[in-house]
Design a protein around this nucleic acid. Structure first.
Lengths: 234, 234
DNA sequence: ATTAATGAAATGTTATCACATTATGATTAA
DNA sequence: TTAATCATAATGTGATAACATTTCATTAAT
């Protein structure tokens, strides 16, 4: 064993996974790591390596890895090796376009289920996100940002789009971190405020516009800049 | 063992899976069965049951089932049992709306990669579909219909949407069969002809319109009728 | 008769080992 | 020096058994 998994032991563990099966805990930990961009693109993940790093037997490690592959969060190469997805600009742009397409659709189809109570909850999440932004707490920012968006889309009880949206989020995971690193505070939060305002006013057009901008000017622009910048020096 | 898997032995096997691993073969066979609607909604699928029915050991059976769960083709209940998804009209309508949304987007983003050669290929697929329709060969119809659509969308080499679209197809699998059963021949095929014509003319608006109608007036309408009809007698 | 308790059967989960495939690096031949 | 070859290690795959959970039918108590 060449200790290829580096510091995966030290990865932050999501809360509330104590009662899950070993396999589910392993899955949640890996998923969380991917979502928050804690594993660089192109990293090779082996069954035994993960098992050792997370102190579980190969079986649950294997199932967790396979599940993440099936969700698009990891890539299975032809030689059966599993790696974190490698990104290029074309693929990135497709993912951003899909995020906008799916999330605007989800928001639209959720509109009629949205209560004042839910809007208050989203407002509260956004307030916490302001604090996390001030504190530069990346993990919390990512998690809260996802809670904000998924809280909105999940208002619709007929859940068919969230798995698709989460698949996209997982694939964009590493670049969420990049985007939030570069984020000059107020920007993203501002869009969230617009979203909340549009929800309160039941202004569908404004809502969709705010969501699109939140995505395209947030992770979309930052990620694209990053990919462009990291291409040249090579 | 109560032989819960009925006649899964007799399920048609997709061609060209000889060189795959046992797990992949198992996955392909189950997937094919689901895609063509050969397993009724609500059917319980057990690891040992599938293993026995397909004459493989539990390990590959389990991996195949888990993968299909991750893709949304099967549902994992809270009690850990795995069943084929149960449909209701609201969910069905969401799936159809998502199909239209994603497939129109995929078609649009594929447009600039579409060659005359590809259009000829699609034309050929559609011709074979005409034959299959005349012969009432359901499996072939379903497979050819998917080849037609995926052939178009896969023209775009930056593949991020096909996994999402296939997830939707899998979830709609049983109703594809229903739709094609009721289909009065010419209808669906006609839309395909429109798609091909729009491709040749590079008419984007006509293309998107034809795709939307192909879906909404094909499986969309038929499936909805079926769900409405089967609701009342109960 | 209904409900609760019990225990056996079915099923999902995990651990482990044997096997197949792939990757790696040393060795040899051109 | 380079390319091919081979042995070894690393890794994924498959089979099996022990264990945990859930289901279900039977039994006992009210």
């Amino acid at each position: 064993m060449v200790d290829p998994i580096f510091h995966l032991n030290d990865l932050p563990t999501p809360a509330g996974i104590e009662n899950l099966t070993t396999q589910q805990q392993t899955y949640q930990r890996l998923r969380y790591a991917l979502m928050t961009g804690s594993i660089p693109p192109g990293t090779s993940l082996t069954i035994r390596g993960i098992a050792q790093a997370l102190n579980v037997s190969p079986t649950p490690a294997r199932e967790a890895l396979k599940k993440l592959c099936a969700e698009g969060a990891l890539t299975e190469l032809d030689n059966r090796r599993i790696i974190t997805p490698i990104m290029d600009i074309a693929r990135f742009d497709e993912l951003i376009a899909l995020r906008i397409l799916l999330e605007c659709h989800a928001a639209k189809s959720a509109t009629k289920y949205i209560s004042e109570r839910l809007i208050d909850d989203l407002d509260e999440i956004d307030r916490r996100m302001d604090l996390a932004l001030k504190g530069d707490n990346h993990e919390n920012i990512v998690v809260l940002n996802q809670l904000f968006h998924s809280g909105l889309y999940r208002a619709n009880p007929h859940q068919v789009h969230m798995p698709l949206i989460e698949s996209i989020w997982l694939q964009l995971g590493p670049y969420t971190r990049v985007a939030l690193n570069k984020l000059s505070d107020i920007y993203l939060v501002d869009r969230h405020k617009q979203i909340i305002k549009a929800l309160r006013n039941r202004n569908s057009a404004a809502l969709l516009n705010a969501i699109e901008k939140d995505i395209s000017e947030g992770i979309g622009q930052m990620g694209r800049d990053y990919l462009n910048a990291s291409r040249s020096p090579d």
